[in-house]
């Protein structure tokens, strides 16, 4: 393989990492509060707002049931508005972020709901305010599960980021499509796949290790 190609692969890998990192960060920051809201706003819960809960749930479901590739195309005007372009790495971050939010929010909701209800009752009995319960009890106790949720989100994001390559999004997927497929260079395709596998493995192992460190239940 020529040095030029290796350079291309290196740049594509960095692009993918940048897309995953930025979309993951923004998506998680927005998805986390939405997930907490979903888990705590049912009838009789900490912030009871069952109607808003239902509406937010509907929007989340709608976003999650839209195939990613269609979502990418459907929000092009919005992407252009934000980034001034609809192709390239920068543009790809927008649909990746939009897809991450509902995905992560649902995982957060599940993680929060797993927290023992007795702990909420104990905190209420101590005179905790609802925000104190969220920060000191729910988020703290769900930390191992939240770490795994973030890991799963990042792994999915790596897959999605390869998909945006199909519509000119940049990164490893883009490289695989243009060189591996369109120019029929199977060696490039192979390297792209191997790099993706390694990335996913690294993220998963790091996430598992971190979650295990946070988990004080099973020792």
């Amino acid at each position: 393989m020529s040095p030029d190609l290796l350079l291309l692969i290196g740049k594509a890998t960095l692009d993918t990492l940048r897309m995953v990192a930025i979309a993951g960060l923004i998506g998680a920051l927005i998805g986390l509060p939405i997930g907490v809201f979903l888990a705590t706003s049912g009838r009789g819960e900490l912030f009871p707002a069952p109607n808003i809960n239902r509406i937010v749930g509907l929007i989340i479901n709608a976003l999650r049931s839209t195939p990613f590739i269609i979502l990418v195309v459907a929000i092009i005007p919005f992407t252009r508005l934000l980034t001034g372009t609809s192709i390239g790495t920068k543009a790809a971050i927008v649909p990746l972020t939009i897809a991450t939010i509902p995905f992560f929010a649902r995982l957060v909701e599940a993680a929060i709901r797993e927290v023992d209800k007795g702990l909420i009752e104990a905190a209420r009995a101590m005179g905790a305010t609802p925000p104190q319960i969220v920060f000191k009890v729910l988020l703290a106790e769900a930390r191992p599960a939240l770490t795994l949720a973030l890991t799963m989100t990042l792994v999915s994001l790596i897959g999605y980021s390869a998909m945006v390559g199909a519509v000119g999004g940049g990164g490893l997927g883009d490289l695989g499509i243009r060189y591996g497929y369109q120019r029929f260079m199977p060696d490039v395709m192979l390297v792209v796949v191997i790099v993706l596998i390694v990335l996913v493995q690294l993220v998963q192992s790091a996430g598992d290790a971190l979650a295990r460190r946070f988990d004080k239940k099973s020792r």
């Binding site: 023992d116 007795g118 702990l119 009752e121 104990a122 905190a123 209420r124 009995a125 101590m126 005179g127 905790a128 305010t129 000191k136 009890v137 703290a140 106790e141 930390r143 191992p144 946070f214 004080k216 239940k217």
Partner: peptide, 28 residues
């Protein structure tokens, strides 16, 4: 909330936070 801070409560299943140490549980 003010009233609850003047009333302690203990539970059948203890309801301790698993991610906090003994010290931090008592400090909560």
């Amino acid at each position: 909330r003010t009233l609850r801070r003047s009333i302690g409560m203990i539970f059948q299943h203890f309801n301790l936070l698993s991610t906090r140490t003994v010290f931090d549980n008592v400090a909560l």
